[in-house]
Design a protein around this nucleic acid. Structure first.
Lengths: 220, 220
DNA sequence: ATTGCGACATACCAGCGGTACGTACTGATG
DNA sequence: CATCAGTACGTACCGCTGGTATGTCGCAAT
């Protein structure tokens, strides 16, 4: 699709094409978020982008490919924002904590929640999903953990496995926040628990845990 | 559907009915596992159970309801087996570790992998999924954590949040094992990392971590 | 014997993903 | 400038699928 051919300059025609492609992806993100993958028809997506299904099939091989494009767009945006947040602190642990907090913030957004967390594994299948994840939030977690291990801050854990486990903990915590009756309160609980868990990774966790975090009374 | 009516005894007719219902669920489990939710037609499921779609729609309201029945059947089986494994040890930590190991074992099975881990969140939606989870592996984790908290073995964490986080860590670790090129090796890595993480929850984690676990050289 | 109802089978439909093909417009070439 | 190839769509259509409406058969209680 859309071979960039041999023309050197980026023609007006190609800009139009790129624009409708983007419109299709935006439309897909909106509708997949609202009604899910199975509940959204390609006609709807095309209509919302003010084109027909013919245009859609010109840009994407099939429904799954369109979903994948939508998924990657959502993930890319999130990754950028996480990188921005984690770039600021100098201390590795601070960066990690900041990233975790930002991630939970992200997971309150319906786009990420539905497309990335809920539907992606099922729609893409595990193989393609894990492949796509290499450029997603998961890779951010892995990079962070790698830095901590390299700095000798935490035990020399098997990187891939540890990253995935931590990511799973974060994702499920995020999902819980997203679906909670009281997201604010729930968010406090989750952040507290995750921080506790992450602190457990610390080398010589004997040091008194930093309780500068807000510490909600865990029991009612 | 299938009102148990007013007959006292369980008639032969009702046995037949129950049998075809079971056949439909079994067929659904097999086909959903093999081809996924979207890739499996109701005609196929009915055919495999040697009935028609009419019978299917007599027993289940729609495709999603059938999936939910399949999901619950798979989960119920797993929960039983986990309970069995965790019943044996007297020490809480041993029970927990045994449960975790057994859970990873379960996650190598295609049924649980595809239906419970991969498709369920997408097909059921988060609301129904979380509802159904109350009688699933998640509840096992929560019960275990609750026991540990009550026994004062770990910090007084907010139970619901902590349980979900730990379950997320386990589930993603399990998923990784399931999709790995070298499941055995990967399983070692995951178990090692999870044990390390769970040990971090331990009260006074200063005590030397138990390294009686097989300790794979974490780096190649 | 009747009859009500549960347990299916049959027939059918609207909507969906996907394909085949037609067409307008653009930009490069001689 | 005329030509023409190819991109970027639109249009028409197909097979399949989930779902529904309706028919039928047999058991079981009256």
């Amino acid at each position: 699709m859309t071979v960039r051919s041999r023309s050197r300059r980026r023609s007006r025609r190609m800009e139009y094409s790129e624009s409708t492609r983007q419109a299709l992806v935006d439309s897909a993100i909106a509708l997949f978020t609202e009604r899910g993958y199975g509940g959204t028809s390609l006609d709807e997506i095309a209509h919302r982008a003010r084109v027909t299904k013919g245009a859609l099939y010109h840009h994407f091989a099939n429904k799954q490919a369109l979903f994948e494009a939508a998924y990657q767009a959502v993930e890319a945006d999130v990754v950028d924002r996480l990188a921005e947040v984690m770039r600021v602190p100098t201390d590795l642990w601070d960066a990690m904590k900041a990233g975790i907090a930002a991630f939970f913030e992200v997971c309150l957004e319906p786009n990420y929640q539905r497309i990335a967390l809920q539907e992606a594994p099922s729609v893409l299948g595990y193989d393609r999903w894990r492949l796509a994840e290499e450029h997603s939030c998961f890779s951010v977690v892995r990079t962070g953990l790698e830095a901590l291990i390299d700095a000798g801050e935490i035990e020399d854990l098997p990187l891939e496995a540890a990253s995935r486990i931590v990511f799973g903990a974060l994702a499920f915590g995020a999902i819980m926040i997203a679906g909670a009756d009281d997201p604010v309160r729930t968010r406090e609980d989750v952040v507290y628990s995750v921080d506790y868990l992450v602190d457990g990774l610390r080398h010589g966790a004997a040091y008194p845990r930093d309780t500068e975090q807000m510490a909600p009374d865990p029991q009612d």
